[in-house]
Amino acid sequence: MHRATEGRTPAELLAAARGGERRAIARLLTLVERGGGAADAITGATHRLTGTAHVVGITGAPGSGKSTLTSALTTLLAEGGRRPAVVAVDPSSPLTGGAILGDRVRMEAATVAGVFVRSMATRGHGGGLALAVPGAVRVLDACGFDPVVIETVGVGQVEVDVAAAADTVVVVVTPGWGDAVQANKAGLLEVADLFVVNKADRPGASDARRDLDLMLDLTEVSGACSARRPTIVETTATKGEGVEDLLAVINTHHAVLVEGTGLEVRRACRLAAEVRARLDHLLGEAAGQALAEAGPVVGETPVETARRLAGRILGAGDTR
């Protein structure tokens, strides 16, 4: 396929990547993103090497300043001696499969400070992303990056889920009632561990904070994977204001998770979500294959056909 790294096996790439070769890291991420056998092999090789990195998800509406905030946050971390990495997810065009991945424009400060940034396209919403992102996080964790930040646009269930599968989930909103309502609709309220009111130098910032508080009062915060009432932080990412506060709150959240059982619960949830995504993917593939083999259906209702094929798939044993 392509170029210098292609000749190496996943294991060789991983050894080089863990030795600090950035191109090998990038190559592993490419293979994970493509899926298939190589991706499975990398998952196998990295799974036991992970668990160190604090995984932070950052999501919010388009235009909320997520990238600028992610840049400011990771720049601060890098300057403080940490080794942050970012996986920035942007949508693929549903028509052509292509994508314009523009997050690096706003993350230039971070890249100059040495942060490893990888842009990732959704490549269709068919669950590929839900497999690729955990795989990429695993590679970066195994290569010693900490924290690993996943940044996604908070529209679309898959994007929200991907960011939500983190130890600490940050939801970014901007001043203006509309944004908070939008966040509520997109289901972002339920997944947030903390909220950022970004662009806090604009009029309406305190209103946004109050709106969020009101909505949180009305939202039942429960369930095994999220337990605490989210903190609200105000930032003006373009000026770097409030970013230190945000980092402190993120670190506190992590510390609380580590001290208690929170982290284990979180990660069990995350693993379950990944298994679920993988299962959906495998069953989807099997369904497609069974349907293709069945050919045109005559003399059966759709329900009967589906049940018959499901029985065949489920009886088929090991799916690989």
Partner: peptide, 9 residues
């Protein structure tokens, strides 16, 4: 993009 490529801009 419209030719199906991923453009890191």
């Amino acid at each position: 993009r419209d030719a199906g490529m991923e453009v890191v801009y």
